[in-house]
Deep mutational scan, measured.
Amino acid sequence: HNGKLCKLKGIAPLQLGKCNITGWLLGNPECDSLLPARSWSYIVETPNSENGACYPGDLIDYEELREQLSSVSSLERFEIFPKESSWPNHTFNGVTVSCSHRGKSSFYRNLLWLTKKGDSYPKLTNSYVNNKGKEVLVLWGVHHPSSSDEQQSLYSNGNAYVSVASSNYNRRFTPEIAARPKVRDQHGRMNYYWTLLEPGDTIIFEATGNLIAPWYAFALSRGFESGIITSNASMHECNTKCQTPQGAINSNLPFQNIHPVTIGECPKYVRSTKLRMVTGLRNIPSIQYRGLFGAIAGFIEGGWTGMIDGWYGYHHQNEQGSGYAADQKSTQNAINGITNKVNSVIEKMNTQFTAVGKEFNNLEKRMENLNKKVDDGFLDIWTYNAELLVLLENERTLDFHDLNVKNLYEKVKSQLKNNAKEIGNGCFEFYHKCDNECMESVRNGTYDYPKYSEESKLNREKIDGVKLESMGVYQILAIYSTVASSLVLLVSLGAISFWMCSNGSLQCRICI
């Protein structure tokens, strides 16, 4: 991952900044910058967002509201009850120091605090018919004063009620008058409520006091790749198909172990950190130390980045220098085999997901714990399936590479015959000098055995068991695999060879 928040398929997220979902939807004055928000790819909250409900109280069923919003990608904020005409018999300019803005008392931008007009609070009834052709999110509140005197001074009615009804919602609220500790300079409380109004449905408000009335509502448009994440990451000019709280993932790998919460087309989250597919040879310690064997393909974004291909070729060293050249036929066979294998694994496992966190309130801790156990169970199954699949494929890959290298080895052996000696570690020792032209003939299969047989015969008789390297004779190393990324691999195959001279070296080696 890149540690950044990015656009998702070209669409920017909605960053709530210092506000949370509650503050944004109710219209906390400190969240005025969010009022123009219309569309987004996903919503970003920060872990310690401080601006929620400015007048103390709870947004009821907040967790369910977050779940609903996680599939919303755009909205239209509109005046559901026009301020100047909807409440002619009531005062609608209630403000509070708890919702101060720029040093002055204020109130929510989407709600109206209705109080008595003169000395009376006549029963009010108002309704709205949803003609938007889509779901409408309606929010309101109920004020709970701290004393009967406060109730009387604001609403005149000691036994007030609030009723809200639609086809799918029907509740009646009565204020709970009680002494409470002071929070944000208030002994009173406000509880906030919401409902989704279906197209064509009607919502009716009736009250004799204590109503925090809707002013603006939201017509919602769903987008199934949307979601809500909690993150401290910063926004950058970048684009992605998959976003996590820790950063964007741009990967076609089937798995990731970065974060379980994802938005967009994302690899499946697994616990494993070692889900690797081999593309090189079986481990040979001396070669492995030099980083030549054991190439791997990573299938977990965050564990290993991208696929690494092994390729086969020849390396030689003689009086004229040293050089490398790919054996294109065996390399292409290996590439085709690995590509098919990788595609097979991805096809089997690479279903892209959006995974969002589930919200539970403080009273639902047991449910949250149960949900976590269920999620953990599914996660263990996914991890096991992934590891088992790759384990089985790896064994076949190792066998496949062994065969490829063996074929190259036999190709060289059949040409050199007794003009060189096998020394048991995949290397041959020449009994004759071999210049670049000679080396090329070994690589392309045109090695002239009779041409060098007499010199080889004489050297075999002279050496008589002495280690060949100390006599200045020449080696050919018969097994060799270097490691390159897919891009470098293609470039390498396009070149005939490249040279690395070893000044004054008397050794001649050709490596497979």
Rank of each mutant, 00 (worst) to 15 (best):
K421M: 15
G337H: 12
N404I: 03
L489R: 00
C434Q: 07
I335G: 04
F353C: 02
V442M: 08
F353R: 10
S286R: 14
V491M: 10
E393H: 07
I423F: 09
F360K: 06
M439V: 10
N350P: 01
V466I: 15
V442N: 05
E368C: 07
P285F: 00
I300M: 13
G302S: 06
E429C: 00
G465L: 11
S470D: 14
T339H: 13
E368A: 14
I287A: 05
Q243I: 08
Q507P: 08
V488T: 15
H259Y: 05
V390P: 01
P245C: 13
I308S: 10
V261R: 09
N257D: 04
Y474A: 11
M277Y: 03
N232F: 10
Y449V: 12
K268C: 06
A334E: 08
W311Q: 01
D327H: 11
V261W: 07
E437C: 07
D376Y: 07
I346W: 02
L468Q: 15
G323D: 09
D309G: 05
I335T: 03
H316D: 00
N371R: 03
V473N: 11
N257C: 09
R366N: 08
S272T: 10
V466F: 11
L391E: 10
I296P: 00
L468I: 14
P254Q: 08
G247P: 08
G294F: 06
G426M: 10
L477P: 02
L490A: 15
H236R: 07
Y409A: 03
A355V: 14
N340V: 11
N257Q: 02
W382C: 10
K341S: 06
M471W: 10
S481A: 08
T240M: 12
L416V: 14
H432Y: 15
N436K: 09
S322Q: 14
G313K: 06
N362H: 05
S485I: 06
L477M: 09
G426A: 03
G323Q: 11
K406Q: 08
G445C: 04
N343A: 05
S272D: 14
I263R: 08
W311P: 00
L281F: 04
D376V: 04
P260H: 15
N362P: 02
S234D: 10
L253V: 05
M277H: 01
C511P: 06
Q317R: 11
K462W: 07
D448R: 12
G494Q: 01
A495I: 02
T273A: 14
T305L: 15
C427M: 06
Q328F: 05
A386Q: 02
S470E: 04
H401P: 06
K417T: 14
W304C: 07
G313W: 11
M367N: 05
F430A: 00
H259C: 08
N418C: 06
G377R: 04
E437S: 09
A233H: 06
G264Y: 05
T305H: 14
T482P: 04
G306P: 02
R460V: 08
R276C: 11
E469T: 13
N361I: 05
E429N: 14
G291I: 01
L477T: 13
G445A: 14
R443S: 05
F400S: 10
C427Q: 01
S497T: 13
S453Y: 14
E395Y: 15
V488Q: 02
C434M: 06
E387F: 07
V483E: 00
I258K: 02
E455P: 06
E364W: 08
Q243A: 04
K365F: 14
Y384P: 09
L363G: 04
A355P: 05
I496S: 04
V473Q: 10
T339D: 07
N283M: 04
L388F: 14
S505G: 01
H401I: 10
L392M: 15
H236L: 10
I463Y: 02
N444V: 07
V270W: 01
T240Y: 03
P245R: 02
M500N: 10
W311Y: 14
G306C: 06
I346D: 02
T383M: 11
R282K: 13
E410P: 00
Y314K: 04
A334D: 04
N419K: 14
R396I: 14
E347V: 05
S441D: 05
L275H: 02
N385K: 09
Q332Y: 05
L275P: 01
G465C: 00
H236E: 14
V342K: 00
I284T: 14
H236Q: 11
L468C: 00
W304H: 01
D380G: 12
V278H: 02
S286G: 13
Y480F: 06
K417L: 11
Q246D: 07
P267Q: 02
R396W: 15
L389D: 02
I287R: 15
M277T: 08
F293P: 02
G298C: 07
T351V: 09
G337N: 02
Q507G: 14
E422M: 06
L489H: 05
G291K: 04
F378E: 09
H315G: 03
R396H: 14
G302D: 06
F400K: 05
Q475C: 01
S485L: 14
Q246S: 13
S485T: 11
S234N: 07
P450H: 11
T273K: 12
W304T: 01
E440I: 04
I284Q: 09
R282L: 07
I476A: 09
E265Q: 13
G504M: 03
C511F: 12
K417E: 04
G302P: 02
G264V: 03
Q328R: 15
E395A: 05
I512Y: 01
Q246A: 09
N369P: 02
E237R: 00
K467L: 06
S485W: 03
A484Q: 02
E393T: 10
E364K: 13
E347C: 03
Y447V: 02
K372N: 14
G357Q: 07
T305F: 08
G302I: 04
E461I: 15
Y480A: 08
E319R: 01
V374D: 06
K457H: 11
M500D: 01
R271M: 03
I423T: 10
G323C: 08
D327V: 04
N394A: 04
T279R: 06
Y480T: 06
G357E: 05
N283Q: 09
W382G: 08
